[in-house]
Design a protein around this nucleic acid. Structure first.
Length: 286
DNA sequence: ACCACTACCTGAAGGC
DNA sequence: TGCCTTCAGGTAGTGG
C-alpha cells in the first residue's frame, strides 16, 4: 500500500545509504513476485555502483553507473528496511523474516532488505537508455507534485480529463494513467478536503470545483510526506520508524467516527466503489 | 474508448 | 482453540 508519500519517504531514507555506494552482494530468496524477477539479478548487480535514486509515481528507480537501472515496486504490502552496520552483538540485529525476498549488501556494510508478504510487488533491471519505453512506466500520467514528469498536472489538465466522463471522480483519481501516484487513502482524503462526494460522476462536477482539487491533492501529498507517510498494518519508513500521517486522516479508516469539519455533526460513512472502500462525510461531500 | 470487475497472495481481525 | 469469512496501501488484464 505504499502510495506516493510512502514511496517518497522510503526514497529519502535510501538516498544517504545507497547513493554513490557499491552493491557488493545480492541475496535473492525467491523470484515469484508479481512477475518472475530476473534470475540473474544478483549477478547483474554485483560490484555495481549506484549513481542516483529517483521516484516515478509509486516506483523507485535506482540508476547504476553501468548504465542499467533497477525498478522497484512495493505492491500492497512491500517494505524496504535498512540495517545499518553495527558493532552491537548479533542478538540486537533484526532477525531475518519470512518474506524477506531480496537483500542488497552495500560496500559500507549496510544491508537493504526488500520484504513483501503478498508478493504483489516487483523488481526489474533494464538499460537506463530504455527507461522511457518500460512497459510499467510508459502509461503513467503526470506526477502530481515536484518537477513536471509525464506532463503538467495543473487545473487545465484535470478539467480536461474529467470532461464528459461518466466514471466517478474516485476512479478517475485512482487511475494511474490520469494521475501517477495517488492510491485509496489519499484520494479519499483529497475528496474530503475538496467537499466532493467520491461517487460523483467526474463529468458532472463544475470546472470550478475540479480546479480546486489540484492544490488540495498537492497539499494532501505534501502533508503526508512531511509526516513520514502513513503507517497502516506494517508500513514503516526505510529506517524502521513508523509514519505519522494516519493520525491525521480525516476520513480514511474512520467509518462511524465523527466528521472533523467544524460544526459538522455527521459521522463518516464507508461505501464500496469498484471493489474498494471509500470513506466520506455524507454532509460535507456532495 | 471507456468502464467495472477479476485475479494475483498472505495475514489479520472478527464472528460463531 | 479453531474454522470460516471478510478485508487490506496496487494494478494488469478481461470482457461488456
Amino acid at each position: 500500500m505504499p502510495e506516493l508519500p510512502e514511496v517518497e519517504t522510503i526514497l529519502r531514507g535510501l538516498v544517504p545509504v545507497m547513493e554513490q555506494q557499491v552493491i557488493v552482494h545480492v541475496d535473492m530468496n525467491r523470484t515469484d513476485l508479481r512477475w518472475p524477477l530476473p534470475t540473474n539479478l544478483p549477478a547483474q548487480l554485483k560490484g555495481q555502483k549506484i549513481c542516483q535514486l529517483n521516484r516515478r509515481s509509486k516506483y523507485l528507480l535506482i540508476q547504476l553507473a553501468c548504465r542499467k537501472s533497477l525498478l522497484i515496486h512495493l505492491g500492497m504490502s512491500g517494505r524496504i528496511l535498512i540495517q545499518s552496520e553495527t558493532r552491537n552483538s548479533p542478538s540486537t540485529q533484526r532477525r531475518p523474516e519470512k518474506h524477506d525476498h531480496v537483500a542488497f549488501y552495500m560496500g559500507s556494510g549496510t544491508k537493504i532488505i526488500y520484504n513483501d508478504p503478498r508478493r504483489f510487488g516487483y523488481i526489474d533491471i533494464f538499460p537506463t537508455s530504455t527507461i522511457n519505453q518500460h512497459r510499467l512506466l510508459t502509461n503513467l500520467g503526470p506526477e502530481p507534485i515536484g518537477k513536471p514528469v509525464g506532463g503538467h498536472f495543473n487545473t487545465q489538465y484535470l478539467v480536461r480529463i474529467c470532461k464528459n466522463r461518466v466514471a466517478s471522480i474516485k476512479s478517475i483519481l485512482l487511475n494511474q494513467k490520469m494521475i501517477a501516484g495517488l492510491g485509496n487513502i489519499y484520494v479519499c482524503e483529497a475528496l474530503f478536503r475538496a467537499g466532493i462526494h467520491p461517487s460523483r460522476q467526474a463529468g458532472h462536477i463544475s470546472a470550478q470545483r475540479i480546479r480546486k482539487l489540484v492544490p488540495i491533492i498537492q497539499q494532501v501529498l505534501h502533508d503526508a510526506i512531511d509526516a513520514g507517510g502513513s503507517s497502516l498494518h506494517d508500513y514503516r519508513q526505510a529506517n524502521g520508524e513508523l509514519g505519522y500521517f494516519q493520525h491525521r486522516f480525516d476520513v480514511y479508516n474512520r467509518e462511524n467516527e465523527p466528521c472533523r469539519n467544524r460544526g459538522c455533526t455527521a459521522t463518516i460513512e464507508r461505501i464500496r466503489q469498484s471493489g474498494r472502500s471509500s470513506f466520506f462525510c455524507p454532509r460535507c461531500q456532495r
